[in-house]
Each structure stands twice: as C-alpha cells, then as structure tokens.
Design a protein around this nucleic acid. Structure first.
Lengths: 211, 211, 211, 211
DNA sequence: CATGAATGAGGATTCATTCAT
DNA sequence: TATGAATGAATCCTCATTCAT
C-alpha cells in the first residue's frame, strides 16, 4: 500500500499556497502590483507575513505565479468551450460568452491579468501574453483564419482582427468591473464584430421607405 | 507700457510646472502611479525634489493635474478633427486616425491616461472618464446616434457600441505601445468597425461560385 | 507544565516596548516632542528605526503612550506614599518629598511630563492632566479640603490652593532639572506652604526670646 | 535741521521688524520653537518668506530676539510697578498683580517666554533667565531680603523663596492660558504666599488636644 | 528692502524581506 | 511549516535657507 502521507502534505502545502494566491489576487486587483501589501495578503489568507516566503521567494514571484495560474485557467476555460463549437461563427460567439463568463465567475483573478495587460510592467505583461499565446492562436487560426479560408469572413488582416477581438474582450471586461458588472451581452458583442455598424442591404428602397 | 514683470514670472512658473508635468508623464508612464518616484520626476525635469511641492501639493495632486491636462488635450485633439468631418462615417474613421495620431505624437502622455483607465485606482479612473465625457458624447451622438438616425447604421445599442469603439481604440493604443509602435492602420480599424468580419453575401450563389 | 512560549514572546515584546519607551523619554526630554527624532530613539533603544513602528503606530502615539505610562507611575508613586501619612500636614509634606523623590529617581521621565504640561500641544497637555486627575483630587480633598474642614487650615480657595501647590511642585522640579539637581528641600517647601512668608507673632519679642 | 530721513527709514524697518516679531510670537506660542514655521510667521506678518531673513539671520536668532524683547518688556513692566510700592508686602502683592496684568495684556508674548522657561532648549532658557535677572534680584533683595531684614518675614532661605515665588507666578500663568484665562486673583495669591495654609493659632490649646 | 522660486538635508513612515523560534 | 519581531532601504513630504529679480 502506498502511503498517502506525502500527498497529504503536498495537499496541505497546496492548500496554503492556493489560499495565498487567492488572497494575492484580491490584493493585486485592488491595489495593483506596486501598491499591494504583502502583509495584507497574508492576513487575508489567514496566515502570518512570513508564510508567504515559505511558498514564494518574493512578492514578484508571487505575482508571476498568480499570473501563470490565472492566465492558464483563463485560457483553459475559454479554449475548452470554444473548441466544442462546430463552426467559427459559433466559436466567435463562444469566445465572448465564455470570456465574459470567466470574468463573472472569477472577477478578482480576471482583474489581475487584465490590469496587468494594461499596466506598466513589461515583464508581467510579457508573462501574460506568453500564457495567452494559445488564445491568440485560437482566435487567429480557428476563428479568423478559418473564417477567411472558408470565404465567410472578409479577407481582413488576421493580426489586426486578433487585436480587435482581444481589445474588445479585455476592454469590455475592464468596463464591466468599473461599473460593477453591467453585464454586457456577449451575443450583441459577437454580432457587432460579425456585422459591424453599417447596415447590410444597400437597397435604397428599404432605407426610408417607411410609410 | 505695462511692465511684463508679473507675466514673466508667471511664465517661468508655468514653464516649471509644465516641465514637471512632462517629467511626471514619463515617470508615471514607465512605473505607474504607485511605482513612480517623486525624486526621479524632479530630476528628469531638471529640478530638485522640493520644487515639485512648490507647484503641486502632493504626488497624488500631481497625477490628477497631469490626468486633467492630458485628457483635456486628448479630447480636444480628437474632437477638433472629428468635428471637421462632414458625415459620421468619415467621423468614425477620423476618430481612429486622430486618436492614433495623438498617441503617436504624445505617446508618453497617452500612456498615462490609458493605463489609468485600466489601473486599480478608482478615483483616477473617474477623473479620466470625467474628462473624456465629451468624447463619449461625440461617439454616442455624433457618430453612432447620427448613423442610426439616418438609417445607415444598424440599430445597435449605442451604449454598447460606444464601449466597443472606446475599447478598440484604447486597446489598440495599448498594444501599439507594447510593441513599440506597430502602427495600426486607422482605416482598417474603421473598416472593421463598419463592416464587421462577415462577408456581405449579395447572393447566396456568390458564396463560393466566384471565379 | 504549560509551555511559557507565548508568555516568553510577550515578555520580549514587552521588553522591547519598554526599552523604546525609555529611549523615547530620553529623546523627548532632551529635544521636546517636535524636536525629537524617531531614528535617535530607536538607536538609543538599540533597535532599528522600523522597530518603533512595530510597537507604536506613530511618533505621536509613542508620546501618548509614554505620557500615560509616566504620568500613571508618577501619580501612583506620590499617592501611595501620601496616603500612608496619618494627617494632612504630613501629607502635604509627603506630597513634596515624594514628588521630589520621583523626579530624582526618574528625572528623564519626569521631565517629559513636566515639560508637556508647559508645552504648546493642547492634546498632550490634556492627556497629562487627565492622568493627573487623581493627584489633583488628592491635593484638593485629602490635603487642602481636609485641613480646612478640620479648621487647621485657613479657609482659602481650594482651587487656588491646588494650583499653588502644583505650580510650586512642578516649577521646583523644572528648576531642579535646569540647574542639574540643586536638590530642593521638601521640608522647607512644605514649611513655606504651611506658614507663608510672614512672621507669625507680631510681637517682635517672643520670636527670639524663646530659648 | 536734522533730517528725519534716517529715522523714518529706521522706523519703517522697525515696523517691519516688529510685525515679524509679533507674528513670530503668535507662531512660537502656538507651535513651540521646533514646531514653528517660518513661512507661517511671514504670512501672519503680511510679508513673504524671504523678508524674515532681511531682518533676522535665522529662525533661531528670530527666537532669541523675540525672547530678549518680550522678557525685557516683561521685566520692565513688573519692575516699574513694583518699585513704586513703598513696602515689601505691597511689593509682593504688586509682583503678582503686575505679573498677571502683563500676561493678560500680552498673552501671546508671555506664553512664549513662559513656555521657553519650561521647554527643552537650554540656550533659550538661559536667555530668558538672563533677561529675568533683574526680576530675580527684585524678588530676592527688595521683597524677600528686605522683609527678612526688617524682621517681618521669617528667615526663610531667600533662594528657595525666590524659586517659590517665580514658580507660583509662572505656574499660575501657564494655567491661566490653559484654561483660557480663569483669572487668578493676585491678592489671594499674595495672601497665600504671605500667610501660608496653616491657621494662626489663637491659642496653643485649640490644636486638638495633641499630647 | 521685499519677493517667492528653488534647494536639499532631514524626518516620519512604509514595507519587502530575513530569521530565530 | 508557520510565525511575527526586527531590519533598513526607500519614499513622500517639510521647511529653513538662499538668491536672483
């Protein structure tokens, strides 16, 4: 029989570590990295200050570990759902609905990575982008690229379109937080992205042929 | 002839103040508000530490003054150009081209306000939004609203569309900075926003039967 | 047997705190509150600067804690001795002898509270007076009041007399410090207070015709 | 004819100087020397910061000049009145009444010197004592000494008695300020000092039947 | 002489990090 | 592993003083 002791210990460690990461997310989201306070993090987690240093070598490494964890979860969450969709139009829609759902379910964690993307620390930003790589590929290839290849999307610059989609997604999320969760409808966002602002039918009749 | 003594003095004051604001923009852009260092700001401006406090009561007030100045300049810059355009489609295009031009001309100043919008400090954020009010109104009324009223835009939710446009604009700017100025083509962005991703199918036949 | 761990830790805490208070007394006595230097206090106590802030939230709170501690000790010291005296004349005498003894034993601590009483900070002053309340009551009731009630003291205004006694006490102490401890004889002071300056019997004969 | 120009200039200088000294008194009284702010002093006086340095070489010298002026005025005020009294008993009474009158007429100036006497700065203290020399001599010689010499005062230690009188005077003044001017009756204080607390025994029997 | 912008040493306070228990 | 007292570099801010105008 294998002894579960080591596992149990790791589980406990893991639990402490996770509580610290959760508390760090709260603090980093509220204060930003530079304004965050190690002491408050440990207290929020229910530990003493020193405990953080038993699990992370520095405040900076704590932040990086948090970024890695949250960004990975973020990407997994979206990827898992998007890839279940059969075609790229639904995938596009799913990208926004899944993305918003993640923010609603983990608002604090999401705030950390989103703020980091727009924050001043280049190394943190790079870390987020690195973790988001798969997400960019998803948009670039499985949505934009596929749509163009199939002729259903106009031959837009896929790089630009990727930037647009990410900007819309992250920007909308930032506003959701700011206004305390207005709740933006992902379907509308997808429609906006798919069809743009301009009215479709150029037929001048329908235009003002109102009675 | 009146002696220009007082004026000269005020000019000097004004000059010092402006140099401090410029240096502050550099520092806040690079380090974020919390990470910014008052001493570095004064040195960048070519003054001693204490000089900042002859012109601004605190680091925080310095930041607020900078936000006010930059946001006002930002809004003026865009408004001035957009309002010279005859119709809302060109206005939409101009919004992006002017917006990107401002970021290119004043990258550091722009970075401060953009980062602030996505940063953790609610009071700063509110200050930016307050200064941006006129810009929101411009988009909401003079572009989206006008386009819908004339029947050229689909009856999208104007609030959502405003969020989309601002997100696209700010998000693109953030990426421009990150990558050191890729140079996003405002015309393409405008086209994206106007027409969306989906191909206009004039006829179901055309879809793949194109020569 | 219970382990003395927590107690030991508290003892250490307490010890550090007390060393800081002692060092603060030295610094505040020498420089006054406004002129006192937190860094010097911590160094005098044998700690680094930051340690003070592990025990007191601010320089001001450190001062208040010191006032509270010293004033309480001062009052206790005098009260304890005075109340052991059988009658109010001896109590009066004891008030001065005990009072001077306290100053001799704890000259630095005494200097802090005495200087505070005459210093510019109203809040500090109020704190001292608040702690001295019991001392005022002692003088007012157990010495002056009792003496008057028994008919042995002239019916002076007890409030005024209390002010006189405290002024004489504190003023004498201040002078003792200034001159580096001349050593004022409490018996003489008590005699002065009891009998005043004026010769008793107007008959110039009796005075020296005694022996 | 002598030209009054130089005098006029000196008068103006003198006026500025005096306004600065008055403002300094207000500031030093309220904040103490270490807490006093040169800028506030100049503003209270209606001048710019630099003006102080046209009249006094430093904050410290400003304080010393203020001490000298106020202490001299204080001593003059009391001496002038006391010396008009025919006998030492009335002089004693006059010492208190004149002393209290000075404090009532110039509460701020008086506060500065009184606080200085009890403050931590030895040099300032010495300066006050030096200026008070004549006052000590007055008490020591013309009141205590004279009274003893004439046999009307008990042969108390004149040094101690001087300390008592000064302590009573300064201590009462300090309390007058603290409580916002209770108004202590100088006659009562003089009576206290002259006759003490103890009732003059009309008969040796009255005491209480002590053995 | 009056001014007030500029100076920079100094000081209170914060906080990431260490380490003995 | 968890603790939290101690550390001291770093930071914001104050303010006496200087000096060109």
């Amino acid at each position: 029989m294998p002894r579960p002791r080591k596992d149990a210990r790791e589980e406990i460690l893991s639990d402490t570590r996770q509580r610290l990461l959760d508390a760090a997310a709260v603090e980093f989201a509220r204060e930003g990295y530079a304004g965050a306070n190690i002491n408050r993090i440990s207290q929020t987690a229910g530990f003493a200050k020193g405990t953080i240093y038993n699990h992370f070598p520095s405040k900076r490494e704590l932040m990086l570990a948090l970024i890695d964890q949250v960004a990975a979860a973020h990407v997994d969450f979206i990827l898992h759902r998007v890839q279940q969709e059969p075609d790229f139009v639904r995938r596009l829609s799913c990208f926004f609905s899944a993305g918003f759902a993640f923010v609603e379910q983990q608002p604090v964690q999401a705030a950390v990575v989103i703020n980091t993307v727009y924050g001043p620390d280049a190394a943190f930003k790079a870390r987020v982008f690195s973790a988001y790589e798969a997400l960019f590929v998803l948009i670039f290839q499985d949505i934009i690229g596929a749509g163009i290849a199939l002729g259903d999307f106009r031959p837009v610059d896929p790089d630009l379109a990727t930037v647009m989609l990410m900007s819309i997604y992250l920007g909308s999320c930032a506003l959701m937080e700011t206004d305390g969760g207005i709740g933006i409808d992902p379907a509308q966002v997808a429609a906006f992205v798919l069809d743009g602002l301009r009215r479709r039918e150029p037929s001048p009749v329908s235009e003002k042929g109102n009675p």
